[in-house]
Amino acid sequence: MNKSIVVIGAGVAGIEVASILADMGYNVFIIEKNKNIGGNVAFWHHLFPNNRSAAEVREYMNQKIKVPNITLFPNTEVTDISQKKNVYVVRTNKDATFEVGAVLIATGFTPFDARRKEEYGYGIYDNVITSVDLEKKLERGENITTTQGMAPKRIAFVHCVGSRDAKVGHTYCSKVCCITGVKQAIEMSKMFPDAEMYCFYMDLRMHGLEYERFYKDAQENYNTQFIRGRVSEVSENKDKSIQLKAEDTLSGLPLKMKVDLLVLLVGMEQGKDSDKLCDILHLHKTPENFIQPQDPHLQGNVSSRQGVFIAGTCIQPMTINETMQNARSAALEINHYLLHL
């Protein structure tokens, strides 16, 4: 039995799978295209639902891979995968070749490129940023100001940017952005106690146990109002503040609002990494362009190809906790497969 596995992607899912399989005695090769591990968590500041520092999760990951039978290959990309019976031969751009019993794809997600929703002015108007930009700024310890250096008095958050939108080809819900919006609104309100926060949503998807508490807290204690309506477009005023248009669908009235800062809650999409692997391995995809599991209930971590497994947000949008659990189930699935080969 070949006791080696290649894990593609050193984010939350990849590292969790790797560390569990290493514990079980397998040799794990992690191939990561970036210099650092951590995937999207690498630049996150605070995490819902308890505002813990993302650095703690990164530290957990760093510790997890410090075992002899895990080897990390940073700055490396998979160029080809071929199969000889039950052995997969994985090649990289660094001319390394791995012969392994199983391959795990944990390529994660790419945040939606908000420039594609041109009507929201990202990349055009200075005071329009994304939820990812906000996390990065907070993580770097930057002051949050408007581009004119002023403390914002009114901040709006736009939900479902790049999600649930046939116009960008993403009809699915990204699952994490509603609660991210609530979390960021609270953070901004703590930073600017006199400022008003507005969240423009279509539906609020508070699916976690604590999320509803967060939502209530934002309304009651953190000056946050929730307006049910999708923002149609924004423009820039002379003073660089942002003018937005939406319909308050609950009162049935169109509204215009001037805000100092607009935060676009960008969703998740599948990037070119998972596309490339799906092409190489001829894997089935869902209509949403995520990697299709063999069976959504019973074999959620098994791809359409024997010996190729999947974990984390390359399967569907997930929170970090869900990704952890999903990764653990993937590890069990891989172990089961290799034991019964």
């Binding site: 279509m202 309506g229 923002v231 149609s232 939406a246 319909e247 509204l255």
Partner: peptide, 19 residues
């Protein structure tokens, strides 16, 4: 899904009782 973005962009909705 009743998102209201059509009403928000509609020039007629800005002036008339129309949605």
């Amino acid at each position: 899904i009743n998102c209201g973005v059509c009403t928000a962009i509609c020039a007629a909705a800005e002036f008339y009782d129309y949605s």
